[in-house]
Design a protein around this nucleic acid. Structure first.
Lengths: 340, 340
DNA sequence: TTGTACGCGTTATCAC
DNA sequence: GTGATAACGCGTACAA
């Protein structure tokens, strides 16, 4: 015979609402109500129930809860590469916003591969309420297909069939061009990122426009791998371009470029000025310290999650995106253009 | 009236085993069997079922599955700080091992706080099958309490009431002391990490023993915050100690120390040799490039998950831990001891 | 205000 | 080999 007190499963420490109900002398459904809809139960019984729950160290089984409601209170953040310093802020901000809303954030890595990313999303999607796609390698229509089934917000991936959060590159790039111009630079080079990178295209477009407005010459060199190695490999082509200042797609590439230039006996910034993007960890540490265009990725991560929650009908969308403006951080890798 | 074909919930695209059963003309339980226990169903019906599943793009609902089985096929990796480069490898390795075993890895951050960590574990525990605790701020008995309820493996946290995976610091430290001794250093300083850090204690103990064996003087300075700032703040005390070589608890602190020393007009390594631990991103980039004791954290993360799976009765424990040996990476931040 | 009854999608234990 | 049926723990109409 099964005593009611023994109805719990084999796993120790797993108190259920049935245990609480028995202890408080009420019906299990009343326990559920008391815990989830405070006020819809008499104060006295609610108190009894809460006490019993505390005594039993009760935690609602998330799976059992998800079944009837269809909601898991879990969000997914899909990244191409967890170890890329660029995504730190993103993770931080997203984690914080999710936690603040009582959601758990699961981080999944797609290893820079579209196929892996698709598989990852496929695997993770049924267990989450919404998805943030950062540094996505997916095509627009693939993203659209996912967005049709689950709420999706992309980061740094505009124009697609889904909501998007992207820092505004304009202010930082305007300041950068003004900075370089005031230093006497007349010919710029942009070290592009991967061929299909939306972000790289965006940065190039903005830089190109700003340079033209200022009457400067500018060339694009690439595409390149968005890594330290990728930056180093492009050094010769940078020199060949005749540019006195090189703007790299990201800090990693800028760092590789600095190393390659110094290895070739060139001085930075005396012979060549070098600029990066993102202001990752290490940008201030390298010699010379890197001048870079910083975006507040932490805030972007926060916005992405807030936006996602809004899509799910939880809370309002983030007010304005003015805060996501980029800014120029001037350090030691930029200096006066060499006189010819 | 509810047609059987309409029994699915409101969420579109969520095919269930009932849909498959109907389509294949069998009972739902047969579908479950066919999909989970291949062979226990006739080849013909299994084929019919699989085809129907494919056509309907069926994916078993993880929550519904977890309810009767109690297993979620999800592992948690709890970290003090996601943005600390030290944990990159850990994440990588753990992710890979988990994915290889068909498990999903959720990454949770405890923000360097024991209280937050406890709350995080509490929140995440019911939804996962096992937990990896890295850089834990929890006390031994707290870890023990968690381990009593769920399989737990700690990283870099020996002696506690749970399974543990830690790189072996001995080889790297032995090589380091030999290296410094050969450069003529006679007095060493160890820049300690946080007061309650098991890892810092372990490194100090090993360094102390090795230094004594070599007949070198050695002092411990700390505790300090395990950050760039923490390293910089300790600079004066390092100088005061009279040591000609400082071994920092980690690379972050070593970097801070280098910056502070150079800001004070000291040359590294001519006036002071500086060594770190971990070989994080940026260690090779800083000037001078940092000499450091490297541990293969990626392998450690892999081992931790393999170990955890073994604890859960899934697969065997990792063979030997010889692979987790540390090694010395000599760069430019160490040089001959200054002649007095 | 509270109890009853059912459903969520799946697995497991029986029968047949 | 396959079909019925009862859990798993929780939420929620509906009834009382």
């Amino acid at each position: 015979m099964t005593e009611p007190g023994q109805r719990r499963s084999g796993r120790a420490g797993a108190a259920t609402i049935y245990d609480i109900a028995e202890r408080a002398g009420v019906n299990p459904s009343t326990v559920s109500r008391a815990l989830n809809h405070p006020g819809r139960v008499s104060a006295a019984t609610e108190a009894r129930i809460r006490q019993a729950a505390d005594e039993l160290d009760f935690h609602a089984n998330p799976m059992a809860r998800a079944l009837p409601t269809g909601r898991t209170r879990t969000l997914a953040l899909v990244l191409a590469d967890v170890t890329n310093p660029v995504v730190f802020g993103l993770i931080r901000g997203a984690e914080r916003a999710a936690a603040a809303a009582g959601y758990t954030l699961v981080i999944a890595e797609s290893q820079e591969s579209g196929a892996v990313e698709a598989a990852t999303v496929e695997r993770v999607a049924p267990a989450v309420d919404g998805i943030v796609l950062a540094t996505s390698r997916l095509a627009d229509d693939e993203i659209g297909a996912i967005a049709a089934r689950k709420p999706v917000v992309t980061v740094n991936r505009g124009g697609s069939a889904s909501a998007n959060v992207s820092p505004d590159v304009e202010p930082g790039i305007a300041a950068l061009v003004a900075h370089l111009e005031s230093l006497g630079h007349r010919t710029l080079a942009f070290l592009a990122g991967p061929a299909n990178s939306w972000t790289s295209t965006r940065r190039w477009d903005a830089l190109f426009a700003a340079a033209r407005r200022a009457g400067l010459h500018i060339v694009e060199i690439g595409p390149n791998a968005p890594t330290v190695e990728g930056g180093g490999d492009a050094y010769e082509r940078c020199e060949a371009s005749g540019a006195t200042a090189v703007v790299a797609y990201n800090d990693l590439m800028a760092m590789g470029l600095i190393q390659a230039a110094r290895a070739a006996g060139r001085r930075v910034p005396e012979d060549l000025s070098i600029v990066g993007f993102d202001d990752i960890f290490g940008a201030a540490l390298i010699t010379p310290a890197l001048t870079t265009v910083r975006a507040d990725l932490e805030l972007a991560g926060e916005h992405a999650v807030t936006h996602l929650l809004a899509l799910m009908g939880e809370g309002a969308a983030p007010a304005d995106c003015d805060e996501l403006a980029t800014e120029l951080v001037v350090r030691d890798s930029t200096g006066p253009a060499p006189t010819r």
